[in-house]
Design a protein around this nucleic acid. Structure first.
Lengths: 334, 334
DNA sequence: ATGAAAGCGCTAACAG
DNA sequence: CTGTTAGCGCTTTCAT
């Protein structure tokens, strides 16, 4: 039964029923008695206004789109969970799209989502900018907020780590613990986030007077395959680095796998510090020292920025290190 | 610009434009020339029919609801990803809901989803049956399929592991490798899946002539906290089991954490076999022997059963063991 | 081969 | 205090 039918049943107009049900009784001065009657009948027959009708009328679906590169990555899963929960408090739902780290797919999905009447979009992009993607975002009338691997200089508010600081943080931790040959498994070099993190690492190294050996830098994307081959290249280089920073959550899986294959011991042969805290970080072999992001805060802020009318500025957050066993104290060389 | 406006622009009726765009030109014998003209104009002005209008007309949202207990659990994340991808091939999208292992929340979310005009529901339930949940499911006119922690005897097709066989598989593997004191970290005892898996374990043990020590059985839910305390109880018992089976993906995290706290060595002190393969299973300390589910197949079958008109029967799939290092060969006792 | 009209379910504007 | 009308954007039925 829908609102009209209920109205008929009660000898009322759909309008009145709608008003009573939507809590606008006051505003339109529907009599308290009528409101009562409608409410009870609605309860009894399990009637509530069909959201589809409401949506068509209002032009909004009451739903926001969430586009992530890999829901299987626990960072994004956690983000998704927080976002869904937060939105629920605001009576909104979530459409989930996973681009599988593929920029072309991402562009298609974005296009598709923009064509639906979503109330807004939360995008955690692949990070590789395409003209298509950029244009679609910039010309969108839909509220959008970009997260994590943000693409810079788009006219869209963003929430992200201070990635160069985070890169520095990781590198400085390694330097402080006596490492001298520091390598880096990057994600996609075209991603701003990756470049920023890498810049932080480079700067810290330069400040300490170290040179970067290009053999120790690798990685060509955020996929599993790219991480594995990149990690293999680094760990198989000669001389081998005495520490490697994994700049992404996927990266650490590549390093762990490559180390296993090449029988490189962590942390005896090389220390590892990994971006993104994971539920299993403490149970890895060895327990991983990680750079952790304030995931929940990101989610909450993202939702707020879409739900609140006030357009806030972009947000930059700080990372922090969780120390465990994958970084070994090295003696200083003479 | 929408279909009507485009029609106006072309001096056509919305009807014709709609037909041309929807590929029904043939059927209604719209002239090929007109179809061409419409298509080109649509391309030029980036016009495509508003899905919201279509939905209202057809009564379907072109979207299926996916309800999981914990998207942060990599099993469900993988499921979600496959499902989204598969549905996309059919031109459908996904609404994601996460009940956070809370049956009350689950019931609310279910209710809410049933009220929207989704094309169907894929539910991976918490597993704890509530009258509300059951009633909602059974009286639903919406196609539903239930996955993984199915609740039995509802009038809904299901896709699940042969859980007693899977439980047996795990227990028999342990028996074969010489274990005599086999414990079990359960999930929610009210969940059918948990009971089935546990039954499999019990049967295998009985067949081998072992007794079950109730000190070695614990676990009171799928949450992190429950897993941890349950695992602690088992590993702290005296005598301690020489092997324990984690009946859920969350459970293994509890065991690993408890073992760390209690300084119980795996596999020297106790062997572990864990349900659900995870991306990091090989990199845990020690690499985990797991019982693996055919996740992708589950996803594909779930989608098919909603998309295809033919109502298929419930599906029961087989698990298999992936052997790694968390199970140690024990000498038989005299 | 094309169009007019109707209606999916809702609610805001305008009457009374 | 309540009802009538209209329209959100689409597609199907019935006409021509």
């Amino acid at each position: 039964m829908n609102v009209s039918e209920l109205a008929q049943h009660l000898n009322l107009s759909p309008t009145t029923v709608s008003r009573a049900l939507s809590g606008q009784g006051e505003k339109y001065r529907v009599s308290a008695a009528t409101v009562q009657r409608v409410r009870q009948a609605a309860e009894k027959f399990h009637v509530s206004p069909d959201p589809l009708g409401t949506s068509l009328r209002s032009g909004k679906l009451g739903m926001i789109g969430l586009l992530v590169p890999d829901i299987t990555n626990s960072f994004f899963a956690q983000l998704a969970r927080c976002i869904e929960l937060e939105l629920r408090q605001h009576g909104m739902t979530v459409q989930l799209c996973d681009s599988n780290e593929d920029a072309a797919v991402e562009a298609k999905l974005l296009q598709q989502m923009l064509g639906r009447r979503l109330n807004g979009l939360i995008i955690a992009p692949v990070g590789r900018t395409s003209a298509e993607f950029t244009r679609a975002i910039e010309s969108s009338p839909m509220p959008i907020i970009m997260l994590d691997r943000i693409v810079p200089h788009l006219n869209v508010p963003t929430i992200s780590l201070d990635n160069v600081a985070a890169g520095r943080l990781a590198a400085e931790h390694l330097i402080k613990t006596g490492h001298q040959r520091i390598g880096c498994l990057r994600g996609d070099h075209e991603s701003f986030t990756d470049r920023q993190r890498f810049r932080g690492v480079t700067e810290a190294l330069a400040d300490a007077g170290f040179e970067m050996n290009s053999d120790w830098i690798s990685g060509s994307g955020y996929t599993q395959a790219a991480s594995l081959t990149g990690a293999g290249a680094i760990l198989d280089s000669d001389p081998r680095p005495d520490a490697v920073i994994a700049l992404s959550g996927q990266g650490i899986l590549g390093i762990l796998e490559a180390a296993q294959e090449l029988r490189v011991r962590i942390p005896e042969d090389v220390s590892i510090i990994a971006f993104d805290e994971q539920p299993w970080s403490s149970f890895a072999n060895p327990p991983l020292t990680t750079v952790s992001q304030p995931t929940q805060q990101m989610a909450v802020e993202a939702v707020n920025s879409l739900v609140e009318p006030t357009s806030r500025p972009s947000l930059v957050l700080g990372a922090n290190i969780i120390e465990r066993k994958s970084v070994q104290l090295r003696k200083a060389l003479e």
